[in-house]
């Protein structure tokens, strides 16, 4: 995904479609502008976020093939519960360096998972083997748990 190109196209289309530029147009044109801008913004927000993009793309790529939307890597749930519990303690009484280190580790793990998505997508788009599609689904399921852990750190 070329993010610069995305930004450029988004700006172009915004200029073409934004309701501000239709203030003096007919009622019908105003409504169309509003609708088109909503669709544009939704598409833009999905495309620029790798996880949102992957969640949107996968069902299209799977073309109705049944993927297990609950599958997680083995032992993953127990690990996540354990991490959540230790995070309780860490955030309550841990030293700042430890908190920062845990955050760095989790951020890296999250980033590794997301860059793995890109590789699997490239593979899936080439041949679309069902096992790769399920791997993607499983990774996307796991991503939400990691995301939840990362949300707990103070900004």
């Amino acid at each position: 995904m070329d993010l610069d190109l995305l930004e450029e196209r988004y700006q172009q289309l915004t200029v073409e479609l934004h309701p501000d530029f239709y203030a003096n147009a007919s009622k019908r044109q105003q409504q169309q502008s509003e609708l088109a801008s909503t669709v544009l913004n939704r598409a833009y927000n999905t495309l620029r976020n790798p996880v949102a993009r992957a969640n949107d793309l996968l069902p299209r790529l799977a073309q109705g093939a049944a993927l297990d939307e609950r599958q997680l890597p083995s032992g993953f749930l127990m690990e996540m519960f354990g991490l959540q519990e230790s995070l309780d303690e860490l955030l309550e009484s841990g030293i700042p360096e430890e908190i920062a280190q845990t955050r760095t580790d989790l951020t890296e793990r999250h980033a590794t998972l997301i860059s793995g998505l890109a590789l699997h997508f490239a593979e899936a788009e080439a041949t679309a083997p069902p096992s790769t599609l399920q791997t993607l689904q499983t990774d996307l399921n796991a991503e939400r748990y990691l995301h939840r852990l990362l949300e707990r750190f103070p900004v």
Binding site: E69, R70, L72, L77, M78, M80, F81, Q84, N141, R144, Y145, L146, H147, R148
Partner: peptide, 13 residues
Amino acid sequence: GLVGAPECGDVMK
């Protein structure tokens, strides 16, 4: 019982 909601990443014991 340990369960999770992949829709949102919640875990419940």
